[in-house]
Simulated scan of single mutants.
Amino acid sequence: MKKIVITVLIACFGFQSFFGQEQLSLSLKKDSDKTVNETEHFYLMEITNNANKSIEFSISTENVTCENVSAQKQVVLKQNTLNKQKSNIVESMSIGAGETLEFYVKISRPKNTKLNTWNCSEVKAISKTGKSLSNPILIKSLIPDPKSFN
């Protein structure tokens, strides 16, 4: 009887760990190499399909509230998802089982953006119905005041 209980518990934990995992793993492969005072930044992202089937998805990029930063010190920036060549905006993607894809997230700000502020952009993969398919990645950006560089 003890062996049966242990076997059932192991099976339950196995199912939980299998179904509890995200289907897609998102990671920041390369941070922007531009200085903080530039108006555009490119982040090389990598996504891996952990499932045993192809998955269609899109990348959701949105402004979110930065923790430990007052609301007056936060601004909204524009995000775009670009292909690996940085030449086209990507609306949706497909990835085969076990495959990895790279793409860029471009974060840009208007020239009149309030200085000495912060932005937090959340990047994640979502299904056509809006269901999250990956872990979120948070990109925190500073819009510096050039006077502070003296």
Rank of each mutant, 00 (worst) to 15 (best):
L138F: 12
E22M: 06
Q79L: 01
F149E: 12
E40I: 11
D31P: 03
S70Q: 12
I10A: 13
F57V: 04
G20L: 07
Q74D: 08
M45I: 04
V123F: 04
V64P: 08
K111Y: 11
N112T: 13
S58R: 14
W118S: 09
Q23M: 13
N49K: 07
K106D: 05
E91A: 08
I59L: 09
C66M: 09
G20Q: 10
I59E: 03
L26M: 12
F57P: 08
V123H: 05
E38M: 09
N112E: 14
D31G: 04
T117F: 01
F149Y: 14
V75C: 11
I137V: 15
I95Q: 05
G20I: 04
A125D: 05
S17L: 11
P136R: 11
Q23L: 15
K3G: 10
K124G: 02
K128V: 09
S58W: 08
S32H: 04
E38R: 10
K3F: 11
K124Q: 12
Q79M: 06
C66G: 03
E91I: 06
T65P: 00
C66L: 12
Q16H: 10
E102P: 02
E22R: 06
S141T: 15
V36F: 06
M93H: 00
I126H: 02
N52S: 12
N50L: 11
F42Y: 15
N50M: 13
K114E: 15
M93K: 07
K114M: 08
I4L: 14
E62W: 01
Q72T: 12
S54D: 08
S87G: 02
N116E: 14
I95V: 11
I89F: 04
L9Q: 01
S127K: 04
V76P: 00
S141M: 14
I55R: 09
F42L: 13
L142V: 10
P136H: 07
I10F: 11
V90S: 03
P144W: 08
N119K: 06
L26Y: 07
I4R: 04
Y43I: 08
T35L: 12
F57I: 08
E56F: 05
P144Q: 07
E46T: 00
I6P: 02
S121G: 06
F18E: 02
L9F: 10
P146W: 02
F13I: 15
K29P: 00
L24S: 03
L115T: 13
I95K: 10
V8M: 14
I4W: 07
S141H: 12
I139A: 01
L28M: 07
K111D: 13
I55G: 06
N135F: 11
N119D: 09
S58P: 02
N52D: 15
V8G: 00
Q16A: 13
W118E: 05
T100G: 03
V5E: 12
P110E: 15
K30N: 13
K124M: 10
N150F: 10
Q23S: 08
A125F: 07
T81R: 02
S108F: 06
M45T: 01
I47D: 00
A125V: 12
G14E: 07
S70N: 14
K84Q: 05
K3S: 12
V5C: 00
N37P: 00
